[in-house]
Amino acid sequence: MASSPVARATGRVAVPVLGLFWLAVTTVPFLFMVMTSFKSQQESFSSSVWALPEALDLVNYNDVLSGPFLTYFKNSVMVVVISVLLIMLISSMAAFAFARMRFRFNEAIFGLIVAGMIVPIHITLVPIYLMTRQLGLYDSQFALIGPYVATSLPISVFILTEFMRQIPKELEEAARLDGCGPFAIFFKVFLPLSGPGLSTIAIYNGIMLWNEFIFAYVLTSSTGTRTLPLAIWDYQGQYTANIPAILTVVTLTSLPLVVAYAFGQEKIVKGMMAGSLKG
């Protein structure tokens, strides 16, 4: 039996209703966040939650931005950029070896590295904390780069190895006939051809690390070294009951990714979905 008119009609209604319902569920918390950020502390106590701000008051934004917020931002950019560049280089090198070279225990080593995806990072927290102190890196931006790179490697190596396995063997052979050794093959042929794989891991790890909290929380302690997720934490302690100010910080920290998202939604969605390769 073909679908009955009744069923089709319900379908026609159900689709937009459910679609808009979830849109509301998704956006209400964001609306609350943005709206509140424009209110004064006084206003947030006195007026209804859903009342529009009395004026487009940028006082909170002024307040936050005149503080050390930009330092957090700069630290985040620095840590994430350095980490992601290192991740791209290190994981693509390893992936090239796994995908293209034969050596003893190739598959065993690959399996071990990939298994690293399941390890809960919390078990490494205390030892890394102690190690960081011993190395004298505690409370510096560089303390974060090691753990960030290492925890991102398993999934990145996995993604890039799969990617490089797809590159035709003949290209490697053609390059060998053209006089390339393993290093030239890697840098002149494989790396340029791995663009899509590299952009996936850059996006995925970039977002993950931009939002990373626990390592940053444990390995840094002062405003000068902390990253954006810690800005929220620190401001929360500082402003205590000033909800609009705190939500302003939350809005501001979320802004960079939202802006990036506006420019490349499809790529970012695809990159984030790389997370489904864990497991």
């Binding site: 679609g19 979830w22 849109l23 998704t26 956006t27 209400v28 918390p29 964001f30 609350f32 966040m33 509140t36 947030s44 106590f45 939650v49 859903w50 977002i207 931009w210 939002n211 990373e212 909290f213 954006l228 997720p229 810690l230 929220i232 934490w233 929360q236 909800i243 705190i246 939500l247 939350v250 920290t253 979320s254 990714l257 939202v258 998202y261 939604q265 970012i268 969605v269 984030m272």
Partner: peptide, 30 residues
């Protein structure tokens, strides 16, 4: 719709934690 639905995944859990702490607030929460 897909693009808008996906927004929460871009947020750090700290941001969400703080946001929802106030979202759930007994007296001032929406």
């Amino acid at each position: 719709l897909k693009i808008l639905y996906f927004l929460p995944l871009l947020m750090s859990s700290v941001a969400l934690g703080v946001l929802f702490k106030y979202f759930y607030d007994v007296t001032f929460g929406p």
